[in-house]
Design a protein around this nucleic acid. Structure first.
Lengths: 152, 152
DNA sequence: TTAGATGCAAAGGCTTTGCAATTCT
DNA sequence: AGAATTGCAAAGCCTTTGCATCTAA
């Protein structure tokens, strides 16, 4: 986690952005649980406890972090954007959304180049991908009686 | 196309929904170009030319059509929902979004059960999927000079 | 010092909802 | 006739923007 924060600091400087306490607070939240996919509102709720923080600052900071490639915006189709650290060279991954508990998990998946082959999409040059799968996570599968009428 | 409209009519009746001219107009638009992915606004613009039609009726009808499984909502992450006929038994497909012209195309892809194998996701039971790929379509690839600074 | 960043409130864009009027059955 | 459906306007959400104030460098 420390490395993630350091990386973010350096990257911000490199790109000529200032290091403010708000920005630090935001990427600390993201770095503390790199596998969690926070919404802007959630980040705001957490950071607000310790620092003065406006929701618009959260959005503006997330836009910057996304632009310089530190984080990725994730959209699972529920109308709210989520954000996660972008592993950069890390292995490509997709997201698993549980229809019952609403949890969002990660799973590794083929890289765009491989998907291009799998899809036989030879007339479209793929650079990026977003793969979201809906179903039931292990915990929710183990209590099948409750599966009826899950959320979403 | 005729069959699609008939199917929609029958399904609506089966589910105890009334057959109104507004609803007919809406699924006629969707059926006329089954491979196009319309936004609610676009459907409204088209149907309004010939019938009285409120935007809220479009949204309400689309919600019903989606609920009874006639159409699918598609989200490519630009904040607007698109709708397409749900082939039902048709082959599963994904969407290709061109970063330059904004066009949304379809491509066939592995079914959820196959993706489950490809992902080796044995702790998550996949029932549905949404795969969106971003890149450049053939037409836009052929004029590479214009690729710099595409939209989105 | 001063350009950049922040917070607040207002505005935007898409979608949903309340309600009286209308229209299928 | 009677319940479902519609259109309009208003409200809801999430996100962005304008602007005066503040702050990192």
């Amino acid at each position: 986690m420390r490395e993630l924060v350091c990386e973010a600091r350096m990257k911000l400087r490199d790109e000529n952005y200032r290091l403010t306490r708000q920005r630090e607070a935001i990427f600390e939240v993201l770095a503390r649980q790199p596998r969690v996919h926070f919404t802007a509102q959630e980040i705001h709720d957490v950071t607000r406890e310790k620092h003065q923080m406006g929701l618009s600052t959260v959005y503006r900071t997330l836009a910057i972090l996304e632009e310089i490639g530190l984080i990725r915006k994730l959209d699972v189709g529920d109308g709210v954007s989520r954000y996660e650290f972008d592993g950069g060279d890390a292995s490509p991954h997709c997201h698993l959304v549980c229809l019952r508990c609403g949890g969002v998990m990660e799973a590794s998946c083929p890289a765009p180049e491989e998907m291009q082959v799998i899809l036989r999409a030879d007339r479209f040059k793929i650079y990026d991908q977003s793969m979201v799968f809906f179903g039931f996570c292990q915990g929710c599968t183990e209590s099948p009686s409750a599966l009826v009428g899950g959320q979403r």
